[in-house]
Every structure is written in C-alpha cells, then in structure tokens.
C-alpha cells in the first residue's frame, strides 16, 4: 500500500531524520519527498510504500510519538484518496 505522509508545523532541526528513522524501523520505504515553507509553516510531503505489517493509523501514531513536543502535525493517508480527488 502506498501512503502520503504529511508533516506540518514549525521548522526545526532533525524533522526529516526523525521521520525517516521511524519509517525505516517499520519497513516503510520512502519513494519521494518534497518540502517547502508556506506562510512560515514547514510543510513536508512524502510518498511511502508501507509493508503489510503496518497500516496508516499505526504509522501515524508512531510518527506522532517520535516528534512529540516539536509542534508538528502528522497525517498518514492512503494514496488513493489523493489520486481520486486530484487526478481524473
């Protein structure tokens, strides 16, 4: 299953490192990363391949725990929802 991971919040050192460590520990392969700063907010989106062992809510929980206290909001959602809404 492919999922889109979104990280929104205050830009600080080590966000990408923390997120990718958790992904690696859980067998999640990161396929694409893009990051940008929009209206002073750090926004990172990742396309990731999830193994059968983990689903979106589980990964989302683990990522949330890893960045606790950093003021970041993380969403992990199935790729299909964006495919269906934004592609014809």
């Amino acid at each position: 299953m492919r999922a889109v991971i979104t990280v929104i919040g205050k830009d600080t050192v080590g966000i990408l490192a923390k997120i990718s460590t958790i992904c690696a520990e859980n067998g999640v392969n990161i396929m694409d990363v893009s990051q940008t700063v929009m209206q002073d907010m750090f926004v990172m989106t990742m396309l990731a391949q999830l193994s059968d062992e983990i689903d979106c809510p589980e990964l989302s929980e683990k990522l949330d725990a890893a960045v606790e206290g950093m003021g970041l909001k993380i969403h992990v959602m199935h790729e299909d929802i964006f495919n269906s809404m934004h592609n014809i």
Binding site: V4, S34, M38, F82
Partner: peptide, 16 residues
C-alpha cells in the same frame, strides 16, 4: 506525485 497544495487541500477539507 501530487502537489503539496493538493495534499493540503484534502487534509484541510477533512480536518477543518
């Protein structure tokens, strides 16, 4: 892949 704006739009629709 989708643009960041597309992704944020969807998340905003659901969350807010």
């Amino acid at each position: 892949m989708f643009t960041t704006n597309d992704i944020l739009e969807t998340i905003k629709m659901i969350q807010e």
